[in-house]
Amino acid sequence: MFELDMRSRKPIYEQLVDKMKELIMNEVLKPDEQVPSVRTLATELTINPNTIQKAYRELETQGFIYSIKGKGSFVNPNHKIRDSEKIKTIKQELEKLILEALFIGISVNELIQTIQELDSAKGGGDEND
């Protein structure tokens, strides 16, 4: 399904959370689709099942997946619900990155062009919600 960087300083469970979120947001994993079981994914990625479980708990806390006892975990069809606290955090992080980009000499036009390219490639924005 995807690969993790075992040499990265970023914890494996965080990498897993990010990859799963990316798959969900890009609709590779469809709403109400079952995600791989902890055991299956642990075998596939050759990592500890507890790491997978921790990542799934985090995804559930963030509202990207939900669990049904005895059945497994599934993609939450309401993952697009806007969480104001999450939006606030993302805007703060984005502000820091934009200021850094401007400081090192990336022009405003380059930033705008990058955003527009990402928007058209990902199909983001309110029009597609």
Results as ranks from 00 to 15, higher is better:
85 E>Q: 15
80 K>E: 04
75 V>H: 07
62 Q>V: 04
21 K>D: 02
40 T>K: 10
71 K>M: 10
82 R>N: 08
43 T>M: 13
78 N>K: 11
43 T>Y: 14
73 S>Y: 01
83 D>F: 12
58 E>Q: 13
76 N>R: 02
41 L>N: 06
85 E>K: 15
30 K>L: 12
88 K>V: 09
30 K>S: 07
30 K>T: 08
36 P>V: 04
51 T>Q: 05
78 N>W: 01
84 S>V: 08
64 F>I: 03
79 H>V: 06
58 E>M: 11
39 R>D: 11
21 K>I: 12
48 N>L: 11
25 M>K: 13
23 L>R: 07
61 T>V: 08
84 S>Y: 06
45 L>T: 10
72 G>H: 03
84 S>C: 00
85 E>S: 14
55 A>R: 08
35 V>L: 00
40 T>I: 05
47 I>S: 04
58 E>H: 09
64 F>Q: 04
40 T>A: 10
61 T>E: 13
76 N>P: 08
52 I>S: 03
32 D>K: 06
39 R>V: 12
64 F>Y: 15
82 R>H: 05
30 K>E: 09
69 K>V: 08
47 I>D: 02
52 I>M: 05
36 P>C: 07
23 L>Y: 07
37 S>E: 06
84 S>I: 08
87 I>D: 14
58 E>S: 09
79 H>Y: 15
87 I>G: 10
49 P>C: 07
71 K>A: 11
24 I>N: 01
64 F>T: 05
74 F>N: 08
24 I>M: 01
69 K>I: 08
39 R>P: 00
31 P>N: 06
48 N>R: 13
45 L>W: 06
56 Y>E: 04
31 P>F: 01
61 T>P: 00
32 D>I: 02
65 I>Y: 07
23 L>H: 05
83 D>H: 11
23 L>D: 01
76 N>T: 01
49 P>Y: 12
59 L>I: 01
47 I>V: 15
58 E>R: 14
55 A>Q: 09
61 T>C: 01
39 R>H: 09
29 L>Q: 06
63 G>C: 04
84 S>A: 07
57 R>C: 02
80 K>D: 01
68 I>N: 02
36 P>Y: 05
53 Q>E: 12
38 V>T: 13
71 K>S: 09
23 L>F: 09
87 I>Q: 13
46 T>E: 13
27 E>R: 11
81 I>G: 00
34 Q>F: 00
49 P>S: 06
88 K>C: 11
66 Y>H: 08
28 V>F: 11
34 Q>R: 15
72 G>W: 00
70 G>N: 04
22 E>K: 14
37 S>F: 00
